[in-house]
Simulated assay, not measured.
Amino acid sequence: MSGFSTRAIHAGQNPDPTTGSVIPPIYATSTFAQDGVGGTRGGYEYARSANPTRTALAECMAALEGGRYGLIFGSGMSTTDTLLRVALRPGDHLLIPLDAYGGTFRLVDKVLSVWGIEHTPVDLSDLAATRAALRPTTRMIWSESPTNPLLGIADIAALADVAHSADIRLVVDNTFASPYLQTPLALGADVVVHSTTKYLGGHSDVVGGALVTDDSELAEQLAFAQNSVGAVPGPFDAWLTLRGIKTLAVRMERHSDNAERVAAALARHPKVSKVYYPGLPEHLGHEVAAKQMRRFGGMVSFEVAPDGGDDPAAEAVRVCGATRLFILAESLGGVESLIEHPAKMTHASTAGSALEVPANLVRLSVGIEDADDLIEDLLQALG
């Protein structure tokens, strides 16, 4: 199976051998009958360790990302936490993006730091700065491309060269792009992670995470850790994510179509001082994004020109509350369009740090509604 949509619909999802069901069943069971002591059927004994619905999703994710091993988690953050705890030890150091997702920063800065893990935020699009930030104790470069929320672009292949020349791992959070738009393993990354809550699920009705790697030893260690701590989704969550993946290709095309039009409209608006979208030719990462991505995705951020008052965030907050189609909500990647104020919502944890986001920044998850309606809504909100 070489085509993306073919893999999305069929990988790990053969008709059920017992009933012929063309959709993988939801195996709503906590335990499995054994054929004698230790004699499992197909490797299933207890649902925390493995569940056939979860296995189907793991195989599908591995196929979409072009990797050998896929693991499915209860959330994107449990994916991140399990990987970091397996791959790092007290005293180790990692690099993170200068505008990393607020949840990732919070985990590294507030939770893992207590455990003795050190980190340095760096602009990963600057390879010289990235090399300069490496230490003898550095064990990992954690990358996002595009980043959340400033849509920064890292050259994944070049970052892989930097990482491997230092004998460390490169991890890429591919949530914003999805495997339809970008496959980091093919560009040299060692591990790719996702919040499957977002574009993979695609309908704002399920929380989950996934990880894909070609490293057999790491995959074994991760599976052991996942089973030990229980960072697993329920079978219905896995089933919902599989259902969403089936339409990922057509949805990402529409997300990208709409986002390109929204970004262009915002770039022309007098009350918008800056637009962050890698599809715009003036974006600093445009050429790299065009090289390593199929399209530029459905995420757009922009800065609202301040109204001259004492609060630089006031006008951006007003715009977030003035839309009619764009729903004021956190998360992203669903079929409906969302709007949020990162400084007060998803990235509030970065306040006062090197990762603090602009107070007048607005982030959009551009859905698959009619683009004309979305643009009209934003224009009326801006005034």
Rank of each mutant, 00 (worst) to 15 (best):
G116R: 12
I117H: 03
H119V: 05
T120G: 02
T120A: 03
T120S: 15
P121C: 05
P121F: 01
V122Y: 02
D123L: 08
D123T: 08
L124Y: 08
L127P: 01
A128C: 04
A128Q: 10
A128N: 09
A129M: 01
A129V: 04
A129Q: 04
T130V: 01
R131C: 01
A132M: 05
A133D: 08
L134D: 00
R135A: 06
R135G: 11
R135H: 11
P136I: 12
P136W: 14
T138A: 04
S145I: 04
P146M: 10
P146H: 12
T147A: 04
T147M: 04
N148M: 11
N148W: 10
L151D: 13
L151F: 07
G152E: 11
G152Y: 03
A154R: 00
I156K: 00
A157P: 08
A160D: 02
A160R: 03
D161M: 07
V162S: 14
A166K: 01
I168E: 08
R169S: 11
R169L: 12
V172W: 00
V172D: 00
V172P: 00
T175C: 11
F176E: 15
F176R: 15
S178N: 12
P179Q: 10
Q182S: 05
Q182P: 02
T183H: 12
L185G: 07
L185Q: 05
L185I: 00
A186N: 06
D190P: 05
D190S: 07
V191T: 12
V192Q: 13
V193R: 11
V193H: 08
H194V: 06
S195W: 11
S195A: 15
T196D: 09
T196I: 09
T196A: 12
T196W: 12
T197D: 09
K198F: 13
Y199V: 10
Y199T: 12
G202N: 09
S204M: 05
D205W: 06
D205P: 01
V207R: 09
V207H: 06
G209M: 14
G209L: 14
A210C: 10
L211E: 02
L211C: 09
T213A: 01
D214T: 13
S216W: 06
L218V: 01
A219F: 15
E220S: 14
E220G: 13
E220Q: 14
Q221N: 09
L222M: 11
L222K: 07
F224I: 13
Q226L: 14
N227V: 08
N227L: 06
N227D: 14
S228K: 13
G230N: 08
A231K: 07
V232E: 09
P233G: 09
P233E: 07
